[in-house]
Amino acid sequence: MPAGEGDGMAVTDPALVAVVAMAENGVIGDDGAMPWRMPSDLKRYRRLTMGKPMIMGRKTLDSIGRVLDGRDTIVLSRGARSVLEGAVLARTPEEALDRARDAARARAADEIVIAGGAEIYRLFLDRIDRLYVTRIATDVTGDTMFPAIDPAIWAIESEEPCERGPNDSADSRFVVYVRRDR
């Protein structure tokens, strides 16, 4: 019997969260790369995702170039025949979620991270409970956009300026959004 069943404790699925850095105009990428340099945000990304399963597309994993340590990487792709060693391939969003839930239970993680790219964010946006957004204080050109964050659906839970690191290419702020209907 799974933990929590039969002992009076409710079993709940981990929250589904998106972690994303985006320019003020919604751009999240250009030609497979981020169009800014933000080492301080990469440290935040590591803290937010460590110990959690992450669902991402094949192109996102390819742009990272490796499986990230301390996290389970589930790659959602209909066309890929294989993925980098250490990643798990899923063919449908439901399969990806099932694999992520299994990984979250194994790690006792309270969140599953949707890690991009744009199509993966779009596929899961209706199911996501929380958005962790680094807003890069610039407008850039790019070929990849994050879906619009509708204020009728999303409420700002917290917002804080980020200290600009010496190697960061722009100022930024960190915004946490929660879904209004949950």
Rank of each mutant, 00 (worst) to 15 (best):
M1Q: 07
A3P: 13
D7V: 03
G8M: 14
A10G: 08
V11T: 13
V11N: 08
T12N: 02
T12W: 03
A15G: 03
E24R: 15
N25S: 10
G26P: 00
V27P: 08
I28L: 07
I28D: 08
D30C: 13
D30I: 06
A33K: 02
P35W: 08
W36R: 00
W36F: 14
W36L: 11
R37Q: 15
R37D: 15
M38Q: 07
P39C: 00
S40C: 07
S40F: 13
L42H: 05
L42N: 11
T49K: 01
M50V: 15
G51A: 09
P53T: 07
M54K: 00
G57L: 05
G57M: 05
R58Y: 13
K59E: 05
L61A: 04
L61D: 06
D62Y: 01
I64V: 08
G65L: 08
D69V: 14
G70Y: 08
R71G: 12
D72C: 00
D72R: 00
I74W: 03
I74M: 03
I74P: 01
V75L: 04
L76S: 11
S77M: 03
R78W: 13
R78A: 09
R81N: 09
R81S: 13
S82A: 08
V83I: 01
V83R: 03
V83T: 03
E85V: 09
G86V: 00
A87Q: 01
A90T: 06
A90C: 05
A90Y: 05
R91I: 10
P93A: 10
E94W: 03
E95Y: 09
L97Q: 04
L97H: 06
D98F: 10
D98I: 02
D102A: 11
A103D: 15
A104T: 09
R105H: 00
A106I: 10
A106K: 02
A108R: 15
A108C: 03
A109W: 11
A109M: 07
A109H: 05
E111T: 09
E111D: 07
I112Y: 13
V113I: 12
I114V: 08
I114T: 10
A115Q: 06
A115V: 10
A118T: 15
E119W: 05
I120F: 13
Y121A: 09
Y121N: 10
Y121K: 09
L123T: 14
L123G: 00
F124A: 12
D126S: 15
D126C: 07
R127M: 13
L131T: 02
Y132M: 06
Y132S: 03
T138G: 04
D139R: 13
V140F: 07
T141G: 11
T141W: 10
G142I: 11
D143S: 10
D143E: 09
T144M: 06
P147L: 14
D150A: 10
D150K: 02
P151T: 08
A152P: 00
A152L: 12
W154E: 02
W154R: 02
A155E: 12
A155Y: 12
I156N: 07
S158E: 11
S158Y: 02
P161T: 08
R164K: 14
R164C: 07
R164S: 01
R164M: 10
P166F: 01
N167Y: 02
N167W: 00
A170T: 11
D171Y: 06
S172G: 03
R173Y: 04
V175T: 11
V175F: 04
R179Y: 08
R179N: 09
R179L: 01
R180K: 15
R182M: 02
R182Y: 08
